[in-house]
Computed example of a mutant assay.
Amino acid sequence: MKVLVTGSAGFIGMHVCERLLAQGHEVIGIDNLNDYYSVALKEARLARLLPQPGFRFQRLDLADREGMAALFASEKPARVIHLAAQAGVRYSLKNPQAYADSNLTGFVNVLEGCRHQQVEHLVYASSSSVYGGNTRMPFAESDNVDHPVSLYAATKKANELMAHAYSHLYALPTTGLRFFTVYGPWGRPDMAYFGFTKAILEGRTIDVYNDGKMQRDFTYIDDIVEGVLRIADQPPASNPAFDKDQPDPAGSWAPYRVMNIGNHQPVELMEFIGTLEQALGRQATKNFLPMQDGDVPATYADTEALRRATGFAPATPLASGIANFVAWYREYHRC
């Protein structure tokens, strides 16, 4: 079928496009190729996709209302996998307008396109950041998520609310996927593990926040892609038995749901750094610092809903995933 993938030059987007193409689908990719991080890396990802039969690309900004409407009208995708967004927690403290443009205005344009073209399933990237100040672990989709600690997280929570409105008003099946700290080959340079690798290889000191006591549910890219594609094949249905007196945030009477994709194995930052040091064959010089504004001390995904729905749960060991990333990094950067 024809699938529209937004953010196709992004980390997750490129990998999702490759899998869809391998399955024989026609893929329409869009991306604005902004300079939040290396445009050269985005172009290199795109260069892997452009020669493949079945892939077409259009450079387009989500906030371009007329451009997005024209794209949906001309392409008429059967499904949409919406992965484009302004990412990053700390950058949202410096440039909040970028998040409003891409994550709010842009998402409305995606929803409107899906509504008018009667898309059979919209799968979109939410984030583990929506759990914000929650402390009960593991994070479950049925938890209340009304206390974000960054604007980035607030925009992702807003996406879930906006999607529900469209699911209710227009019977648009939507699934929001809360990704937990995705890593792997072709990853984002703004992520800590990427910066650590670069600094260690260059003999520079790395900044370790919260004295290395942070915990993250590191999830390998192949597991994320597997989860996305399995969920895409299963649009949510309306649930007439939904209890409005005791509403479950994970579902609805409308064809709507949210779901975690995480490794269900939180790892302390110091252990992660140790695994990275082992893969690189070098020790890091560490500068210990307090936790940054907008950050959270731990993330830990409850993945039971994903397992029940698809029979799949991420399980790539950290050592394997990090080894794959380091091998890619050395080859890509020739170091």
Results as ranks from 00 to 15, higher is better:
residue 279 A to Y: 02
residue 237 A to H: 12
residue 237 A to V: 13
residue 249 P to D: 14
residue 266 P to G: 03
residue 239 N to Q: 11
residue 248 D to Q: 08
residue 236 P to S: 15
residue 247 P to I: 13
residue 265 Q to T: 07
residue 250 A to H: 15
residue 266 P to S: 04
residue 262 G to Y: 02
residue 241 A to S: 13
residue 281 G to V: 06
residue 242 F to Y: 15
residue 262 G to A: 02
residue 247 P to Q: 12
residue 282 R to E: 02
residue 266 P to I: 02
residue 273 I to K: 08
residue 276 L to K: 09
residue 240 P to F: 08
residue 259 M to K: 04
residue 254 A to K: 05
residue 279 A to D: 04
residue 261 I to R: 05
residue 280 L to I: 10
residue 266 P to T: 00
residue 284 A to D: 10
residue 273 I to M: 12
residue 269 L to R: 07
residue 266 P to K: 02
residue 266 P to M: 02
residue 246 Q to G: 09
residue 246 Q to H: 15
residue 267 V to Y: 00
residue 238 S to H: 10
residue 264 H to F: 04
residue 253 W to R: 06
residue 272 F to M: 12
residue 265 Q to Y: 03
residue 242 F to K: 11
residue 249 P to T: 09
residue 249 P to K: 11
residue 243 D to P: 13
residue 283 Q to S: 12
residue 263 N to L: 05
residue 249 P to Y: 09
residue 276 L to I: 07
residue 275 T to H: 01
residue 282 R to Y: 03
residue 273 I to R: 09
residue 264 H to I: 02
residue 251 G to K: 11
residue 284 A to Q: 10
residue 242 F to E: 08
residue 266 P to V: 01
residue 267 V to Q: 01
residue 279 A to Q: 12
residue 275 T to G: 08
residue 250 A to Y: 09
residue 278 Q to N: 14
residue 283 Q to I: 02
